[in-house]
């Protein structure tokens, strides 16, 4: 059964259609990635699921209930724009946020103590948030998101602005939460980050869901039509290739998507003539490549995909 079911939702701000007739389902116990460039409508869709915004049309159900104040407490949400009350103490602030999610004072206090211990932050309980370092307040923000122990977690651009240690920690937490049977939805515009984590994806572009399904199946559908090549020498030969699209190019590496049945052996020959080849590998396309080939090269601003 789908834990989150989004059916034909649309939302406009003035003349802009931020979300345009989008549907997707998130099954229980999966990590679901909402991908797409900045401004594609991911955050608007997430806010509708969180009942912060109301869709102009369409429906969203959480565990079978239409979105409402009640479904809000089933979700732990970490928005892209993160923040805390700077003048409040860590403990009372976390207790307040957990209480707003429906926990009693006693319950909240117990949960907060547990999580602060777990993050080796028990000593911060009486510190003001304004006195914490950035990394420390990021940890507090995680606890605020997960302390009421919901079974659905939504992270909007969770890795932006995180230091590497917290980034790694968040990955571990997400995987752990999933392994315990929880459902996770997160959005990102950095495709390569999700490749390792997501079970399912939905690609957004200009407010529309352009591709939707299991990550593995989507990749298999494209076949091994991509070459990863590592070389030493002049890379000018890459510019001479016909019917290819080159992503992720650097001085001695390139990801070559082969189009129109161009022979890979020909590419290898050409490469050998110009440079020393360290590695030549046929692989499934990267998500970035899948995104570009889905929406068409002309329909995206390449700068928005980093």
């Amino acid at each position: 059964m789908a834990v989150i079911e989004v059916k034909n939702i649309s939302k406009s701000f003035g003349d802009t259609r931020a979300v345009d007739n989008v549907s997707f389902e998130i099954p229980k116990g999966r990590i679901f990635g909402l991908l797409g460039p900045n401004g594609a409508g991911k955050t608007t869709a997430i806010r509708i699921i969180n009942h912060i915004l109301i869709a102009d049309s369409g429906t969203v159900t959480i565990n079978g209930y239409p979105v409402s104040s009640k479904t809000q407490s089933m979700i732990g949400y970490m928005p892209e724009e993160r923040g805390l009350y700077k003048k409040m103490r860590v403990g009372e602030q976390l207790i307040y946020l957990a209480q707003l999610k429906g926990l009693s004072y006693e319950e909240s206090k117990k949960k907060i103590r547990y999580w602060l211990d777990r993050f080796e932050a028990a000593a911060w309980f009486d510190k003001k948030v304004g006195e914490l370092s950035k990394g420390m307040s990021q940890k507090i923000q995680f606890i605020a998101t997960i302390a009421h122990n919901p079974d659905i977690y939504i992270f909007d651009e969770p890795f932006s602005g995180l230091d590497p240690i917290n980034s790694e920690m968040l990955k571990e937490i997400v995987i752990e939460l999933r392994d315990n049977g929880n459902t996770i939805l997160f959005s990102t515009h950095r495709m390569e980050q999700v490749e390792q984590m997501c079970d399912d994806i939905c690609l957004f572009n200009n407010g529309k869901a352009v591709l939707n399904g299991k990550l593995r199946e989507i990749k298999q559908r494209y076949g091994k039509n991509t070459i990863n090549i590592e070389f030493e020498g002049d890379d000018a030969f890459l510019d001479e290739l016909q019917d290819v699209r080159i992503n992720n190019r650097s001085a001695n590496y390139a990801e070559i998507r082969v189009l129109n049945g161009q022979s890979m052996q020909e590419i290898l020959k050409k490469a050998m003539n110009h440079a020393e080849i360290y590695k030549f590998e046929r692989v499934e396309p990267s998500l970035t490549e899948i995104f570009i080939s889905t929406v068409g090269e002309d329909n995206i601003n390449p700068k928005e995909l980093s």
């Binding site: 912060i52 928005p79 724009e81 923040g83 805390l84 946020l97 707003l100």
Partner: peptide
């Protein structure tokens, strides 16, 4: 302050 602190969206996901 709630807007510039960016706490508001966390609050809005719990409170109308």
């Amino acid at each position: 302050e709630e807007k510039t602190n960016r706490i508001i969206e966390v609050i809005a996901s719990s409170v109308k």
